[in-house]
Lab assay of single mutants.
Amino acid sequence: DWEDIVRFLRKLFELGEEVVIGDWHNHHREEIKRLIEWLEKHF
């Protein structure tokens, strides 16, 4: 279910905002944000 995936990604992203998950999070933050925005537009 796409909504569950979007919710999971958003939760992960919000957690990442508070607890910076090292370089991985910083590197992928923009991609995650773009992916969430893309999914919201399409689903």
Results as ranks from 00 to 15, higher is better:
Leu39Ser: 00
His27Gln: 10
Asn26Pro: 13
Glu17Ala: 15
Phe8Leu: 09
Ile32Pro: 00
Trp2Leu: 03
Ile32Phe: 08
Glu40Ser: 11
Arg34Ile: 09
Val6Gln: 03
His27Ser: 09
Glu17Asp: 06
Val6Asn: 03
Glu17Gln: 14
Glu30Arg: 12
Trp24Asn: 09
Glu3Pro: 10
Val20Glu: 05
His25Thr: 07
Leu12Trp: 07
Phe43Lys: 04
His42Ser: 10
His25Arg: 05
Val20Met: 09
Glu14His: 05
His28Asn: 03
Arg34Trp: 12
Ile36Arg: 02
Leu35Ile: 08
Leu9Gly: 00
Gly22Trp: 04
Leu39Tyr: 04
Lys11Gly: 07
Leu15Pro: 02
Leu15Tyr: 05
Leu9Cys: 02
Trp24His: 07
His42Leu: 15
Ile21Tyr: 02
Phe43Thr: 03
Glu3Met: 11
Leu9His: 00
Ile21His: 11
Glu14Phe: 06
Gly16Lys: 04
Leu12Cys: 05
Glu14Met: 12
Glu14Gly: 10
Gly22Arg: 03
Phe13Gly: 00
Leu9Arg: 00
Asp4Ser: 13
Asp23Leu: 09
Glu31Gln: 11
Val6Tyr: 14
Lys11Gln: 11
Arg29Gln: 08
Gly22Ala: 05
Leu15His: 03
Asp1Ser: 13
Lys41Thr: 13
Ile5Met: 07
Phe8Ala: 11
Lys41Met: 09
Arg34Lys: 13
Trp2Arg: 01
Trp38Glu: 05
Arg29Lys: 10
Glu17Val: 15
Leu9Tyr: 01
Ile5Glu: 00
Phe43Leu: 09
Ile36Thr: 03
Leu9Asn: 00
His25Lys: 05
Arg10Val: 10
Asp4Leu: 15
Leu9Gln: 00
Glu30Lys: 11
Gly22Tyr: 01
Phe13Lys: 02
Arg34Tyr: 08
Glu31Tyr: 13
Lys11Met: 13
Arg7Trp: 03
Arg34Ala: 10
Ile36Pro: 00
His27Ile: 12
Glu30Asp: 07
Leu15Trp: 08
Glu14Arg: 05
Leu15Gly: 03
Asp23His: 05
Glu40Ile: 14
Glu30Phe: 04
Glu37Asp: 09
Phe13Leu: 09
His27Arg: 04
Lys11Pro: 01
